[in-house]
Simulated assay, not measured.
Amino acid sequence: MKQSIRIALLSLFMTIAGQTGQALAGEPRLTFFRIGAGPTTETLYALSTAISAGISRPPGSLPCNEGGVCGVPGLIAVAQSRSGSIDNLFAMMRGELESALVRADVAFQAYHGGGPFKYEGAQENLRVIANLTPVSLHIVVPAGSDINSVRDLRGKRISVGARGSGTRDLSLIVLRTNSLAPRDLSLRYMKPGPASDALYRGDLDALFLVGAAPVDAIADLAERMELRLLPLEGYPRRQLFSLFPFIETDAIIGGTYEGIKETQTVKMGVQWVVWQDTDETLIEQITQALWQSDTSALFNRNNPRHTFPDPRYGVPEKSIPMHPGATRYYQQAGLLAP
């Protein structure tokens, strides 16, 4: 249904543009810009919908200084829900998306041709526009479970995220750093909503989820049953740091979820990526609209548990190369040295 609505809206925009082409003489030409996101219950989708609304400014719209939309003139951005970061990047490779929101570790793997991208080779023309809301690894178990560490998951029924999601790939890496191979576990590949329901019914022993705390699926589940988060620390966490230089130490603060104490874990950024050959002026305008339009207000209003990142955090560091259009904006804004 949601996909049908998106297609219908696109058709409507195209019809309007065609019918009003003469009336809108002097308006910038219409440009569609697709943004790949994650499942509708995850942070990436909430970010993509806010961004698409904030950077868009269809032909005929009032200028920003006259109470109109403060997006890029002529641009219509459309958020598309997909399985996750890996699926998004493969869709970009097939030409189905102009851009995508992906986790930093997945962008790093794609750029270097590692992990799930080893058969496609290094995607060296991948570029980043911005860092967005950081996301944290959650490993959730019932409070009464006898599972007290990741190594205790041996032989258990675990959801490691949907196929095509970055959560799945990171989960398997975390399990390996704890000396657990897929054959040692009963793995399920589920999206956050179904995985939470399965844990509640007793059909799962644990679930992995990567998202900006508090993750709605976990917060809602914590209101239905008592939960714990497994810590990720010590040698396994240090191994992750050696694999991905941008992964950072994190602590999910006690009380973030009902009844759950502070738990050590890791976090990383969500990055907005495009191809290097995307028009520099367009990307400069998009980057400016990302940070100077209504994007943050839209996100914060619709996601009261979260806060849109500060532009100073948004300047990409320790990641794949930045798109030159984004670089130009950050330099002109005084956020990046020339």
Rank of each mutant, 00 (worst) to 15 (best):
K2S: 14
S4W: 05
R6K: 15
I7A: 09
L9I: 06
L12N: 07
T15C: 12
T15I: 14
G18T: 15
Q19H: 15
E27T: 15
R29D: 12
R34P: 00
A37N: 11
A37W: 04
P39G: 03
T40R: 09
T40V: 08
T41F: 04
S48R: 09
I51F: 06
S52G: 03
G54A: 10
G54R: 10
G54D: 07
R57A: 13
P58H: 12
S61V: 06
P63N: 14
P63W: 14
V69W: 12
C70S: 14
Q80E: 13
G84Q: 02
S85Q: 10
I86A: 10
L89G: 03
L89Q: 04
A91C: 12
R94Q: 15
L97E: 02
S99Q: 04
A100D: 11
R103T: 10
A104G: 04
A107D: 06
A107G: 13
G113F: 13
K118W: 07
Q123I: 11
L126D: 10
V128I: 15
L132N: 01
T133V: 03
S136R: 00
H138I: 04
V140C: 00
G144F: 02
G144M: 02
V150L: 06
R151D: 12
G155Q: 12
I158F: 07
I158R: 06
G164V: 01
G166N: 01
R168E: 07
L170H: 06
S171T: 02
L175H: 11
R176P: 00
N178L: 02
L180C: 09
A181P: 02
L185Y: 05
R188W: 03
Y189S: 01
K191M: 07
D197F: 04
L199K: 05
R201F: 03
G202E: 11
D205G: 08
F208L: 03
L209K: 00
A212I: 03
A213E: 02
A219G: 09
L221T: 09
L221Q: 02
A222T: 02
R224N: 03
R224A: 06
M225F: 02
E226Q: 05
E226S: 08
L227Q: 01
P231Y: 10
R237A: 00
F244G: 14
P245N: 13
T249G: 04
I252N: 11
I253S: 11
G254C: 13
G254L: 10
G259H: 08
T263R: 08
T263C: 07
T263F: 12
T265G: 01
M268C: 01
V270N: 13
Q276N: 15
Q276H: 15
Q276P: 09
D277W: 00
D277L: 07
Q285H: 05
T287D: 00
A289F: 09
S293W: 10
F299M: 09
N300P: 07
R301M: 08
P311G: 08
P311T: 13
R312K: 15
Y313W: 14
V315T: 10
E317A: 15
I320M: 07
M322Q: 11
P324H: 00
A333E: 14
L335F: 05
A337W: 15
